[in-house]
Structure formats: C-alpha cells, structure tokens
C-alpha cells in the first residue's frame, strides 16, 4: 500500500463566473512507504495545492487522494500525517514546549506519554535550551525545527514538508537535511516540496516536477541525473605523462575526452568547512 496515492487528482479555482483556473490537472502520484519523495516546481506550479488536497484543506474538483489507503477527505487519515507548513505558522505567544504540547493534545496525547515525547522531540530538533522561550523570540531556523517537532509529535508514518529550509541559513539547512535522513532511517515516508534542488538531489529517492498543475517529469533521482552516454574517473596524484597515456587510451578505445580539469567542491561544502574552521580558531565576541 502506498503512503500517498492520488488518482486523477484535479483542482480548479473559480476566478469569475465563467472563468476557472487550473491549480492541479489529473495528478497521479504514488509515494511508496519509507521513501523520500521530492515534489519540485516553480511558484504556482501546484505543489501547495497538492499538499492541501492531501491534507483535506481543499476538496478536489475531480479525482481522489489516499493516505495509506484511506481517503484524504476523512479526518482519521490525518492520524498518519505530520505536516510542516512553508514559513512556520504557530502561535507566537506559546513557548516551544507549549507548542508541541498543544499539538500533542490535539492528537489525543496526555500525561507522561506526552511529556516524554516533548523531551524526546526537543532533543531531536536541538531546542532543549530554548524550550521555555516564546516563539516570538525564535529565529526562522528554530521555528522550522519546532515545526518539525510538532509534525512528529503523534509519531506519524508520513511527513509532509513544505519548503522546510526556506529562509534558514546553510547550517540550519544541513541540520534539517540530516533530520530528514534520520526520519527515513526511522522508517518514515517523507514528501518534500523544495526549491533547493541540490538538497533535494542529496536526500530524495525519487522526484516529480510539476508545472502548470501537471506532472512533467518523474523518476528515481539517480536515473534522471545519470548521463548514460558518458563515464567519468576522478584520480589523485596522477602525473602529466600518465594523464597523456589515459587520453591516448580513451582515443584508442574509440572514446572522446569531453572534459578534464580539477573537480570543484560545492559552495555549501566550502561554507561549512570555513565556518567549522573559524569555530575552532575564533572565540565568539573576542
């Protein structure tokens, strides 16, 4: 049974008496259990509409959505879903701990069971030190983390993350990425909507690209990105005469050297290395 399944799921928005705009057009999506699925697309492509239909916040114009086999229109289906909205919208007057407790209670949790879960989640998202601070004083990254904690409070099998790293600095972004990887290891299924393609590439098993409400491309990340007509070696300590021999061997074998040079690191890796190095040598405020 798929964690999410949509059958010809469509949503039209009426903009005037005669005119309707297509928000989502016959989407057939199947997210398998314990998979990290990336839903990509430009703004207005239908990603948020898809999430709202899966969460029952919108009613479909046509088609159906199912969560672990149950119609998404049924409130009981949400027992299995945790949702982190884009830009976390929570009560600013509650503390981090109170926020998780509020959502836990909504899920029917009480007493020691809930209190233990709050401790566990605050530790998981690294907010133990800020548990009594009101959300009004939280940074964007901290809000995302408390949002993730509330999404996980009732131990759902499916987690929907809408732009979980939007506005978060690279370190916070890496932490959230690591958390998603951890969720997969815990056996959860994750549907991730994001604009950060590098991150999606790193953590998603499969991706789907939406545009104008239609699924225009879908598949395994490895399959979609692999250039099957090319092959690459990365070597270390190879002298110039040895490189010349490699070029010669490629030509002899009927191939062609398309590119050579020093491989580049990513800006993200460079940023993280620099920050870690600075943390070792520079004392804050000195």
């Amino acid at each position: 049974m798929n964690a999410i399944e949509t059958r010809d799921l469509s949503k039209y928005f009426r903009v005037s008496l005669r005119r309707k705009v297509v928000g989502l057009d016959r989407l057939n999506l199947a997210v398998r259990p314990n998979e990290v699925y990336g839903l990509l697309g430009p703004n207005g492509s239908g990603k948020s509409t898809t999430l709202k239909l899966i969460l029952g916040l919108f009613q479909p114009s046509e088609g159906e959505a199912f969560i672990f086999g149950m119609s998404a229109e049924r409130v009981a289906s949400r027992v299995s879903v945790g949702f982190l909205p884009e830009n976390p919208y929570f009560y600013r007057y509650l503390s981090g701990e109170e926020t998780i407790r509020f959502f836990g209670r909504l899920c029917g949790m009480r007493g020691k069971n809930l209190e233990d879960k709050i401790d566990e989640l605050l530790a998981l998202v690294g907010l133990e030190a800020h548990r009594h601070r009101r959300l009004a004083g939280y940074s964007k990254g901290m809000l995302q983390r408390v949002g993730l904690a509330q999404a996980l409070v009732h131990d759902p099998g499916l987690i929907l993350l809408d732009e979980p790293t939007a506005g978060v600095d690279p370190i916070g972004s890496i932490e959230i990425r690591n958390l998603i990887i951890k969720l997969k290891q815990m056996g959860k299924t994750v549907l991730l909507c994001s604009h950060l393609l590098d991150q999606v590439q790193d953590i998603c098993d499969r991706v789907g690209i939406l545009h104008y409400g239609k699924m225009i491309l879908e598949g395994e990340v490895k399959d979609l990105l692999a250039r099957k007509d090319q092959f690459q070696f990365v070597s270390e300590g190879l002298s110039e005469p040895a490189r010349a021999k490699v070029r010669e061997a490629i030509l002899k074998g009927g191939g062609r050297v398309v590119m050579e040079g020093n491989p580049e690191t990513t800006l993200e890796q460079l940023f993280l290395q620099s920050v870690k190095q600075a943390e070792k040598t520079i004392q804050p405020g000195k």
């Binding site: 969460l55 029952g56 916040l57 409130v75 009981a76 949400r78 027992v79 879903v81 945790g82 949702f83 982190l84 909205p85 830009n87 919208y89 929570f90 009560y91 959502f103 909504l106 899920c107 029917g108 949002g147 509330q150 999404a151 009732h154 929907l160």
Partner: peptide, 14 residues
Amino acid sequence: ENRTIYPILAKPVF
C-alpha cells in the same frame, strides 16, 4: 491571516 489554522487542521481535528 496568520495561517495558524493549517497545522491544526492538518492534525486529526474536525
């Protein structure tokens, strides 16, 4: 307006 309703109705809440 503050969209605080989203995470609430995303839970099993009628």
